[in-house]
Design a protein around this nucleic acid. Structure first.
Lengths: 179, 179
DNA sequence: GAGATTTAGGAACGATTGTTCTTGGCTGGT
DNA sequence: ACCAGCCAAGAACAATCGTTCCTAAATCTC
């Protein structure tokens, strides 16, 4: 039995979600992680193996804990407009921002991240599928802003799927090629 | 009159668009830029001032040259579905990917990038506004995939607008706070 | 042919990066 | 009280980073 930890792993992971949701992966240094998470760098490497290991833990936590919350919001919203409103304005959705960042900047170059992002997006798609009324496009989707958002969102998904694309995979093909 | 240049500035900028469209800003090193663009590091700094200066030049070029092409595609598409299909699958749209990456990872932390992204998104919105029929949502927008894409796209815009948001600004508020 | 000026082609610089190592502290068991 | 084992608290390491500096080459003008 050794010295007791001065940190809680789950709490460290949750704090990491917030940091990684706010800035790009390379924009968050290990020094910063150590400062903000209350875990020493040695312990960070012992617990998560690497900076990338912590990132994956944070991403998985948010996909396991916050995506279901997102899904619950979608399922309970009276219509799509209300769902969009609530899901795109809340400060609490660090998980969604992490998903967004992971999809755009990490998934095209990290297959493990790509698989997690794919899993999360598929879960969201299935929740929307289950919910009646989503076939009825929200008012915002008929607006120019909604059109542009959809366009960017579709392109984001194409890029995020580059490393995990396979025959019969849904939606559109092409995107940046891995180097 | 001195030694003649061995590079063409416009060509360097175009090549930079491709590099920055494929990987995150910090994922592209100056060494890589020098290798791929055919311009020496000294000349890069003389011409663009910094790595960020080159990035802004690339972003502006793509917003000036490729966004109008995008707009032309939107205007000429027979319907929204065709527009989505063409605009999210083409390998040629490095400009769109650069806009996507700039919106997600640079705009929240760089006001000049945020202003360029805002300008481009507003131009796209206006093109869609001018085009009749966009009020009629594309089939894909009624699908779960389209819903999720729209959700991510809306969130992306909120985050991108953080540094440029003002009273009366359109759409949703909130996003990551600048540090 | 010499001089001025600009660019090519690196090397060098100071800072930062992610990761590993070293030393001391803290706990429970004996 | 001592020992084993784990964590805290840095320091150290090697590599990479963006930017500046230095030397040589290439051109035009005189």
């Amino acid at each position: 039995m050794g010295r007791p930890r001065g940190f809680d792993e789950a709490e460290v992971v949750r704090a990491a979600v917030v940091l990684f949701a706010n800035r790009a992966y390379d924009g968050v240094s290990v020094d910063e992680l150590v400062s903000h998470l209350g875990v020493h760098r040695n312990s960070l490497y012992k617990t998560f193996g690497s900076k990338r290991g912590l990132y994956l833990a944070a991403l998985r936590w948010c996909l396991n804990e916050e995506v279901p919350t997102l899904i619950a919001e979608i399922e309970r919203a009276e219509d799509a407009t209300a769902a969009f409103q609530r899901l795109t304005t809340s400060m609490a959705w660090a998980g969604m921002d992490l998903l967004l960042l992971a999809a755009v900047e990490r998934a095209p170059v990290d297959r493990e991240v790509a698989l997690e992002v794919k899993r999360a997006l598929n879960s969201l798609d299935e929740a929307v599928q289950r919910r009646r009324g989503s076939g009825q496009a929200a008012e915002i989707m008929r607006s120019p802003l909604g059109f542009t958002a959809t366009l960017l969102g579709l392109r984001l998904r194409v890029r995020a799927a580059v490393l995990t694309a396979e025959s019969g995979a849904p939606t559109l093909r092409h995107g940046p090629h891995p180097s």
